[in-house]
Design a protein around this nucleic acid. Structure first.
Lengths: 152, 152
DNA sequence: TCATCTAGGTCAATCATGTTGACATAATAC
DNA sequence: GTATTATGTCAACATGATTGACCTAGATGA
């Protein structure tokens, strides 16, 4: 292992890196816990949240677009997407220019649910960033982006 | 990374918070991807990594300790733990003071595998922290700890 | 026009990850 | 000597997700 830490004893640095690793796990879990619980109350899963999120972010997208963004099989996407349409969270209209493709949008109640789910997460970030300050926010974003590596 | 939009509660700020949320997901995925791939090559899963990690961090722990830390059912823990013993990554010796409890430790090859798995993750953090600087590291740790919330 | 391609949908089998329930065994504690 | 504790194991089940095969409706091009 390369010692990237100038001056610190290796073992102590390793322990510090372990703590960073664990902190990432705990943060991730904390961020997803509440929306997961809300979804469970509605009999829905994380996949439904992901669908709502991406349809909200890219309205008028096609099923194929969603498939590519989510990275799941079409057979798996089909059922939760149908559920979301049936309970009125997502509206699907055929594209007039090519009636094979469906244009997906959130209904008002779908947007409301999405805001409750992702909104909880955004509020958590907003509170934390407000408490830590703008410089910490910028640094967090930079470090997290570096951890993620080059993105497509 | 020039997307902070400090303080305005507008759509732009919401988009910035969405980007933070997505960055967390991508970072988490990037950090876990390589160890997951290594484990898959060995026919093992994430649970094996978790076991190796916690046994490495707290040697001489009991099965019950591991159960409590991992938060899984004992029936589920049993199989992967047995596998790890069978292939010689983990050694279990009865506690001389109470021979019902097993004291779990990593074997040298178990420690080597653990170092390959978690070591990859530590190195990623080490590289990123080295590139971003100590102040960014401190800020990242603070923000991430705040995101995680109060920890037991 | 007709053959072919594309977007989407659906049935069925399968696999992985975990859970719960029930019960077994060995060792310790009272 | 009985009750309790630490661990192990069999079995059934739930959920999330995949692959393969096949289907329809609509678009497209020789």
């Amino acid at each position: 292992m390369i010692d990237l830490d100038d001056g610190n004893p290796t073992e102590a640095r390793e322990a510090a890196l372990n703590r960073a690793l664990e902190a990432l796990h705990f943060a991730f879990r904390a961020v997803t816990a509440r929306p997961d619980a809300m979804l469970a109350d509605l009999g829905l899963g994380r996949i439904h949240h992901r669908i709502l999120y991406f349809v909200g972010r890219a309205p008028e997208g096609s099923v194929g677009d969603l498939l590519a963004i989510l990275g799941v099989s079409k057979q798996y996407l089909n059922r939760p997407l149908r559920q979301l349409q049936q309970v009125g969270y997502i509206h699907a209209a055929p594209d007039p220019a090519d009636r094979r493709v469906k244009r997906l949008t959130l209904t008002p109640s779908g947007a409301e649910l999405e805001a409750a789910l992702t909104g909880d997460q955004r509020q958590r970030f907003a509170r934390v960033f407000a408490e830590a300050g703008p410089e910490a926010e910028a640094h967090w974003r930079r470090v997290t982006a570096l951890l993620a590596g080059p993105r497509p």
